[in-house]
Amino acid sequence: MYSTKYHNPASIDAATAALSSGEEAKVLAGGQTLLPTMKQHLAEPSDLVDIRGIAGMADISANGATLTIGAAATHASVADNADVQSLCPALAGLAAHIGDPAVRHMGTIGGSMANNDPAADYPAAALAMNATIVTNSREIAADDFFDGLFATNLEDGEIITAIRFETGAKCGYAKFPNPASRYAMVGVFVAQTGGGVRVAVTGAGDDGVFRHAGLEAALSADWSEGAVAGVDISPGGLLSDFHGDSAYRANLIGVMAKRAVAAS
């Protein structure tokens, strides 16, 4: 690993100051992607700004049907949280199947959202539920947050502090994990929200997580596995790689959508 400077700020202000102090400073929230990337010399941050020491950053709270999950909440803490389990079991289940137990003890929701890996799980939940990404300077709707592979609309020096989910909707998530990495080959999150039915697909799009209009229309009319069967799912714009081509992934989207509806 290249050398780097580690910062452990106790406040958001100290964290933003540390972020602007380095040439190429990065936020460290759990490090389960960032550290392996650094070890492979694919990233060379001049500074690492650890946000886990900031008070309240890992808190999870419920207010009515609104869940607010701190950016530094680990996947294990989301999966085990009683409020998440009762208000949105699909989200708790999603968190319980990220990586493996040791990774879930360290990896965080904020890190996953900011990294926006095209095969990560949380982006599918956030987009399907149109979650609100809360940062140190503003609130961003998930619709406006994701910006292609490993890219988001976060500004330089902007830090995610929490993700807010409006629950109450019927939700389901199903993924077909790559047997080695456990990342989604395809993951589909289905949600009935105040703004209608939303379906988000991860693992499959060549531009990252996306909503599927055909599935949304079919499930708006009839929330059932049978409705999914009639949807034409095009392989256009889907990833083709070593693990599966775009036609295979297109088929998996239908299969995972059915399972997600069945689980909702």
């Binding site: 389960q32 550290l35 690492l48 294990a76 137990p101 040791a102 003890h105 360290m106």
Partner: peptide, 9 residues
């Protein structure tokens, strides 16, 4: 808690 010490600073 179990963690991977190769992925922890």
């Amino acid at each position: 808690k179990a963690v991977k010490s190769c992925t922890t600073l």
